[in-house]
Design a protein around this nucleic acid. Structure first.
Lengths: 345, 345
DNA sequence: ATGAAAGCGCTAACAC
DNA sequence: GTGTTAGCGCTTTCAT
């Protein structure tokens, strides 16, 4: 390359397209066309522009671009709780698919001091950027909050069922998934089981309820263990141990792997062997390393959800289609924490 | 409120500041001043503008704003692996502190098909937005890649030691943390220990090496278990079991909780009781539910790192100060997987 | 305290 | 195939 005529040391971030055009000896419009334009550009011109850009370290100004184009190829993700592995994984998967589709994505999370106020704030950050589309993966944002924007920016709710008639959603089929576990437990011959049903987590609650219903329908005696304080240590553990002592149950079902994990030390302390004395099932299959623990659980289809969400989004970007609400099935993970019921042996 | 004269149903996203100004009966300049301006505005004018904005559902266009202002109050976070709980937590914490500071943050992650190319792409997404500052929390981006931008956008590397003379960094004191565990193991009277030293993860490698060194210095016989294939199942597990069988070791130290977790099933299978037959230590303290497992580990100070990183960033935003490289100590978690060495009893 | 006007960096007709 | 020009929505002198 011949040394640039404009070789003064200016920061790459200060290099505008005009400078690139000048350096390449073309007009700004042509330079613009080279980068994103739909109209054809002569091959040697194109090359000249690329080289000039390379030489100057040009970084296109996204703001100016979308401002002028009155549209943005940036998608936004409103993410509830990045510190929750299930959401973290969803984030990573969405990002991968979005990139693969040649789009961009920026993510915002509500400052997790809880409360709708912060979610609203995060939403506005995305809207302020005039994103071209939005993935919403958060519990608190109500559909009505999104309503005013629906005509301008496609919204796909992911990871949470949404029934709003104008909003697409891709989420997990918690009922079906619960059924998978119920089938497994019933098939193993258990006739009495404890089910932990938390009050505070929407999806965990739903899972618990579904498992209770499923077991009952199959003639299994169910002991519902409610779990008022979310995340508290002793939660229901003693109750389950007691139920086992009284030989009322041979299995316990938890609405998340996390809760199963939390129960383990109590089982050990009580001298209960898993699964010989007591079978256990979890829910999620996401916790890193959980596969190594050999939990019997359901793996929620995070990857599928991400893939579908991006597909749906792309379809929306092309043309608005009637909203669909998809429910994705998980897969049963046959671990080592579920065994034949002692009496059935 | 009197009904607006301009009450036609236009999407809030199409409401410009000009419309707000019109509605409020002031000039665009004044409206602008009301929202972010430094020059004073009469109280009643201010109120009128706010009300007009509220009525119209005005959402300021961030792009236009930063374009015109030639500066941005948006910070960027370049995040390595959102599906890793440690990074997920860091993300959440950074977001919280940034919001608390009245700033905004957008996050991008490299499409995790590995490779510097995608990290570069993610970096450019942030640069393209002309963020006002950048947190970098990723292994692959080399300092040289950032160099050209340092004079225009303050960069704070977080979660990874960085020694570049122009880049601030806030990270974990892995050596000190390793020392905490070594002290605990030595204090428990162990005279022979296995240490898993992975090849592929930079921080895990460093931790392993530090533990090996620490133990050796304290006169403990160390058996280094290298772990070539990252994340493979059997990794070193058999070797450790064998070492115990031969009574060469009474403890095994892992460079992450995840690896300790992965070893557990092997220990059980081999009939080794933890910690009676074999003491185990982890590293991280982040895995959700890990506290419930009672691991003896070191909790890395993610929250502290996030807080400091934001503090450092704010300082940079005000005025560039000479870069510092901070190392934050973790805390020992005295779990139930470390016991007195059998011979010492 | 407020308004008028000149851009910020870029795209998109519309000419040639 | 390429250049010219008029904005996109906003901030910021500079007047008043």
């Amino acid at each position: 390359m011949a040394p640039s005529m404009d070789d003064k040391v200016t920061s790459p971030l200060k290099v505008t397209m005009a400078k690139v055009a000048l350096e390449a000896g073309v007009s700004r419009a042509t330079a613009s066309r080279v980068f994103y334009g739909s109209t054809p550009v002569a091959e040697h011109t194109r090359r000249a522009v690329y080289e000039a850009a390379e030489r100057l370290g040009y970084v296109p100004n996204t703001m100016a671009r979308s401002l002028a184009a009155r549209s943005s190829d940036i998608l936004g993700l409103l993410l509830r709780a990045p510190d929750n592995p299930a959401y973290g994984l969803l984030f990573a998967e969405l990002q991968a698919h979005v990139s693969a589709a040649g789009l961009q994505m920026v993510t915002v999370a509500p400052s997790r001091h809880e409360g709708a106020h912060f979610e609203r704030q995060a939403l506005n950050r995305l809207l302020g950027l005039r994103v071209g589309g939005m993935f919403v993966s958060t519990g608190v944002i109500r559909a009505e909050m999104l309503e005013p924007f629906l005509d301008l920016v496609p919204v796909v709710v992911v990871g949470r069922p949404e029934s709003h008639p104008d909003i697409h959603s891709v989420s997990y089929d918690e009922d079906y998934n619960a059924g998978l576990l119920v089938d497994a437990v019933v098939a193993a011959g258990h006739r009495g089981a404890a089910v932990v049903v938390p009050d505070h987590s929407v999806s965990e609650h739903r899972r618990g309820v579904a498992m209770v219903r499923g077991l009952t329908e199959r003639g299994v005696k169910v002991y519902e263990v409610s779990s008022p304080t979310f995340g508290s240590r002793e939660e229901g553990a003693r109750e389950i141990v007691e139920l086992r002592r009284e030989e009322r149950i041979t299995a316990a079902m938890f609405p998340s792997d996390w809760r199963l994990l939390a129960f383990l030390p109590h089982a050990q302390e009580a001298g209960l062997k898993v699964p010989d004395d007591l079978s256990l099932t979890g829910f999620d299959g996401i916790l890193p390393g959980i596969d190594l623990m050999g939990f019997t659980t359901v793996r929620i289809p995070v990857e599928d959800a991400a893939r579908r969400a991006v597909e749906v989004m792309r379809a929306q970007l092309d043309e608005r289609t009637p909203p669909r609400h998809e429910l994705l099935p998980g897969t049963l993970v046959r671990g080592r924490t579920l065994a034949q019921a002692p009496t059935a042996r």
